[in-house]
């Protein structure tokens, strides 16, 4: 898979033979001004690689929601993205307070966001449900006091 600017998928990951382009982004806590920068960068990469508009849109929305969650709840974190011809895998890792009740967190409308965050338009309790809706597979591992890892897989 190629693009006009020379970006291409390379066999960088392991011995699986699957071509993967890997990207890593630091996400800062409580930085709402630059929140979404990692998602925007991934979106541009996917466009350059020539993926379909629907796939790019689903990936962008899912990753943005995850990125915002790390900004609001996770105390910042790291976003690692692996792009292959068939799918994108987004791994979001934070060392924040963790999620006490994952089933409750997955429920539409449930949110622990502060009033300040709600005034900015977030905290509707739709983040994780939106990510689930846009993705093909979602893995959420969280431990209270240790942090949260969210792995989002979206197939082309």
């Amino acid at each position: 898979m190629h693009n006009s600017e020379g970006l291409k998928l390379e066999n960088k990951n392991d011995n699986s033979g699957v071509e993967v382009l890997k990207q890593r982004y630091e996400v800062s806590a409580d930085d709402f001004a630059s929140a979404g920068a990692a998602s925007a960068a991934v979106k541009k990469t996917l466009k350059q690689l020539g993926f379909s508009p629907d796939f790019i849109r689903r990936t962008s929305i899912a990753m943005y929601e995850g990125e915002i969650n790390m900004v609001i709840h996770g105390g910042g974190g790291v976003a690692e993205v692996g792009i292959s011809e068939n799918q994108v895998t987004i791994t979001l890792t934070d060392e924040g307070p963790g999620i006490a009740d994952i089933n409750l967190a997955m429920k539409e409308g449930f949110s622990t966001a502060s009033d300040t965050v709600r005034e900015m338009g977030f905290g509707a309790g739709m983040g994780l449900p939106n990510i689930k809706k846009q993705s093909d597979n979602l893995s959420l591992i969280s431990e209270v006091g240790k942090g949260t890892t969210l792995v989002i897989t979206i197939a082309t």
Partner: peptide, 8 residues
């Protein structure tokens, strides 16, 4: 005006 609503 709820951004997560809009994203969905």
């Amino acid at each position: 005006d709820l951004l997560s609503r809009v994203l969905g």
